[in-house]
């Protein structure tokens, strides 16, 4: 369990690399505008396959990552495994840009919680690449999460839902008063309202307990040791079991005439 998330830190550093791999245009030999500059072998590493998750911090600039070297190393991390909710805590630097009064109001908060949901990612689409000794090693990413600040302290403050409070007040007042009730006839289909999956997902997530994860900072020794696992161990040539045509067939979306399709079904 604990080693499951160790490479995360590493991944975060390599985010940019991963992007480059994806964006790099497919080199074609006849492309004159885009000549081949350099060639190097590409390896597919599976040593950490299934264990790499990408945490992204959209509200944070790349120049100041959440690492101990920037004095904002992650102090604690948690996960709800079933619902995929992840949280990390980072310290809030109180020396600058810090409102003491607000800090007191919110009970001396000195760390910030970043929250996100793991979304399954297509392993062919997002990969982590390590460039080492003129070799590129690729590792598939299982899921990604965008971690944004969660202002739970603000929510805690006005957890009292104004409407709920008002409703409570109303019921207290009107408890003894007789009320006119409109009788409505409902058909059976109306009795089971259909809620969206979002509501159920949120409910499920709220019911689940967090599991604390051990966090290793980027610059720690053992993180780098795990990082070694990103390179491929066996350097055999991979034999492609699909032919070019099969691959094309697999990714193509040809027009299917409804009539012929129906005939095929029969």
């Amino acid at each position: 369990m604990s080693d499951l998330f160790v490479p995360d830190e590493d991944v975060e550093v390599k985010t940019e690399d991963a992007m480059d791999v994806d964006v790099a245009p497919v080199t074609e030999h006849d492309d004159q505008d885009d000549p081949i500059v350099k060639e190097f072998p590409v390896f597919f590493s599976t040593r950490l396959a299934g264990n790499i998750h990408l945490y992204q911090y959209p509200a944070r600039s790349v120049d100041s990552p959440y690492t101990s070297s920037h004095a904002t190393g992650i102090t604690e991390s948690r996960i709800k495994k079933e619902s995929g909710v992840v949280e990390v805590d980072v310290p809030v630097p109180t020396d600058r840009c810090y409102d003491q009064a607000k800090g007191t109001q919110w009970k001396n908060i000195d760390n910030q919680t970043l929250k996100g949901h793991l979304v399954e990612s297509n392993p062919q689409e997002n990969m982590v690449g390590v460039f080492k000794n003129n070799e590129l090693h690729l590792n598939p990413i299982v899921s990604t999460a965008l971690l944004r600040p969660s202002f739970d302290h603000v929510n805690q403050e006005n957890i009292k839902d104004p409407a709920a409070a008002a409703a409570a007040k109303r019921t207290a007042q009107n408890a003894n008063e007789p009320k006119a009730i409109q009788m409505t006839v409902k058909s059976s289909s109306e009795q089971t309202p259909r809620f969206s999956g979002a509501l159920l997902a949120v409910k499920k997530a709220e019911d689940e307990e967090f599991v604390t994860l051990q966090w290793r900072d980027r610059d720690q020794e053992d993180t780098w040791d795990v990082g070694e696992l990103l390179t491929a161990e066996k350097k055999d040539k991979l034999e492609c079991s699909t032919t070019r045509d099969e691959y094309l067939e697999a990714i193509s979306v040809p027009y299917v005439d409804p009539v012929t399709m129906a005939a095929r079904c029969l």
Partner: peptide
């Protein structure tokens, strides 16, 4: 899927 294979970057990892 084809769009992603042709080099489009998935919006879910883009800010």
């Amino acid at each position: 899927n084809l769009c992603y294979l042709l080099g489009a970057e998935n919006i879910s990892v883009i800010g």
